[in-house]
Nucleic acid binder design. Structure first.
Lengths: 303, 303
DNA sequence: GCATCTTTATAACTCAGGGTTATATCCATG
DNA sequence: CATGGATATAACCCTGAGTTATAAAGATGC
């Protein structure tokens, strides 16, 4: 079997005319070229060059082979470039499932920046509950899950990917907007949109309330922070919203304030142990982590 | 640079699922596969397989690479087959210049048999004088010259490729046809077509005549045996014709007889020293020699 | 006509990589 | 718990592609 290297040497010698210049071009010594040519001729069984007056002139057969070899070199380069693109994560298919608050907040923002350097990427974005994230990951339909509350599943690996916190949002001009920091106790005295006690978010908030001997009171119960944020924007009341939902959003119409006490909240990247995690997914995960390490959104940020 | 071998191993492992079966298929040991995979992963910088429970499952990236590698394998096979075809002389371009007697006689016959096994061949056949043969060979416009009289040129190599002789042809029913062997002296007593004393053929015949104290007498002078043969066929007279012109011809209308004395005549293959002789030309040359070694045409042969 | 340059070929050696065998380890399974 | 199938590791071997040094043979220039 004739090797790619042999074809490369053959082509180069034909191209540049002498073994010495071919050797220079291929960054090896001249005898290496001489030997390889002779070896190749022995292998294929007919001469590739005509030796005359101590010069080499390629035979028609050699030219024919070199011609055909060009296509092989093309293909070689193609494979090489695909390997490079796969390494750099600039190629491939990335399938993400995220909770709605992430999917509506930070995800499009980060994705658009991630895609800037990777125009060839194929994307698939799904939004869903923790259960949906679990299902898609264990069935291999998604590469990466993003969620605030980490799922518990033996076949899934969870990585903390960034720190955030709950923030209070109120409609512009709302009385709470006058304060720099809003105590959670204050929430009970205003029209307040919050999350069901059955939801992970609701439970986490409840825990803080009860630690302070408070009972959480709200006039409207929603499931997703995105919904709450939209209601606030329409002036229906105030709400606690995770900082991730605020990143990449224009805040016109709403005022964002820190809470007291702080309600820390981390974003988790989830991958399946049942399928190999694509290099691309890992790249996106660390890209996301890099963005989030800049710290959670600040009151007033428009990002 | 990732090698073809690495891609081959990668593809095979992905295809058959385990290193052991891949090793079997590639006829190497299992550790060889294991090492190559690991080495490849080190080289490209990201994992190609997910190790889990001591099993290998290919990553998306690995699948992608293997997919692309298929094209490279195709190309590899293509080059390989072209090398084989070049070796077997079943591909390429063959340009022959021959004298008219050869070109009209044996050449088409031998060529058609040569081409039977080589349907892809590109042919170029030219007929011409010795001078024309010389010119085309030294200028590189032809690979192989075929001639009875060997050309004299420092840049040309001549190989004897087959033995023949002069034969006497007469129209069917001609009085000479009654004899088994025709003495050259008999020719002077009938309507006789022959070659100018300036032509190589004429000179050779003249030599035999004069050795016997005879003077060659003919009523019609032609240059080529093919012309002479055609005239005989039309009943214009008898002629001496080289046996090569008779091979592959239907002899209806003419009778062929041996001469006394024998006038031996060899066919010569001529190649240029200025250009490498194509493998194909050499193949044809030996094919032709093989055909001719069957001996010259016999009286009555239709070949 | 002789020295020099260019070019290819040869010789003798080095070294890395792809191969080997033997064996360890891990897990699924009867 | 033993067994079988799978991958990985270790230690070794050998071929082949590379090296340097040098020879040989034409071209070239003074």
């Amino acid at each position: 079997m004739i090797s790619a290297r042999q074809l490369e040497v053959l082509s180069t010698v034909i191209e540049v005319g002498t073994t010495a210049r071919a050797a220079e071009l291929l960054a090896v010594s001249q005898p290496a070229i001489s030997n390889m040519i002779r070896h190749t001729e022995d292998l294929i069984g007919f001469p590739l060059f005509h030796r005359e007056h101590g010069r080499l002139t390629p035979t028609h057969e050699a030219r024919h082979i070199a011609q055909e070899a060009q296509h092989l070199f093309m293909q070689q380069k193609r494979v090489e470039s695909i390997v490079n693109e796969l390494r750099g994560g600039t190629i491939g298919r990335l399938s993400i499932v995220a909770t709605p608050s992430i999917g509506h907040g930070i995800l499009p923002h980060v994705l658009s920046r991630f895609m800037e350097q990777r125009p060839k990427l194929q994307l698939s974005i799904e939004l869903g509950s923790i259960d949906e994230i679990n299902r898609r990951l264990v069935s291999g339909r998604a590469d990466l899950g993003l969620s605030i509350t980490p799922p518990r599943h033996s076949a899934l690996s969870v990585h903390e990917v960034g720190a955030g916190r709950m923030m209070c949002v109120c409609p512009d001009g709302h009385e709470l907007g006058l304060l720099d920091t809003i105590s959670i106790a204050d929430l009970n005295h205003v029209q307040h949109i919050s999350y069901g006690t059955g939801t992970p978010l609701g439970q986490q908030i409840d825990k803080v309330f009860s630690e302070r001997g408070l009972e959480r009171r709200y006039f409207c119960e929603v499931r997703h922070t995105a919904t709450a944020l939209e209601m606030v924007r329409n002036g229906l009341g105030v709400a606690l919203v995770d900082s991730f939902a605020l990143i990449g959003q224009r805040h016109h119409g709403v005022t964002v304030r820190d809470t007291s006490p702080e309600l820390p909240l981390n974003m988790h990247a989830v991958t399946s142990n049942l399928f190999p995690t694509s290099n691309l997914a890992l790249r996106f995960q660390s890209f996301l982590a890099d963005v989030l390490i800049g710290g959670p959104v600040q009151p007033g940020d428009t990002v």
